[in-house]
Amino acid sequence: MVMDGLLIAFGAFFGAIFRFALSKFIKRIYPVRLPVATLLINVLGSFLLGVMIGIGAGSSWRLLLGTGFMGAFTTFSTFNLENIQLHAERQWKMLFTYLGLSYGFGIGMAFIGIVLGTYCAS
Rank of each mutant, 00 (worst) to 15 (best):
G100E: 08
S60L: 12
I17V: 15
S122V: 05
I17T: 14
A37G: 06
K24G: 03
L6T: 15
I107G: 07
A37D: 06
N80W: 03
I114K: 05
T67N: 13
L39V: 09
Y98V: 09
L39P: 01
G58M: 10
I41S: 02
L34G: 03
I53Q: 00
A110R: 01
I84P: 00
R33A: 08
M52K: 00
F13D: 10
Y103W: 07
M3L: 15
G117Q: 01
K27Q: 15
F47R: 02
F69T: 05
M3P: 13
L48K: 02
G71L: 08
A121G: 00
Y119T: 09
L39T: 04
L22M: 08
M3T: 15
N83S: 04
M1Y: 14
M3R: 15
A16K: 11
L99Y: 12
G104D: 08
A57T: 06
Q85W: 05
G117K: 00
A16R: 11
L99D: 09
T97L: 14
K93Y: 03
N83H: 03
W61V: 00
H87M: 10
G104E: 09
G117I: 00
F14T: 11
G50D: 02
M70H: 02
G11W: 02
S60P: 06
R33S: 13
L81P: 02
I53W: 00
R33Y: 12
M1R: 15
V32L: 07
E82S: 01
M3E: 15
L86I: 05
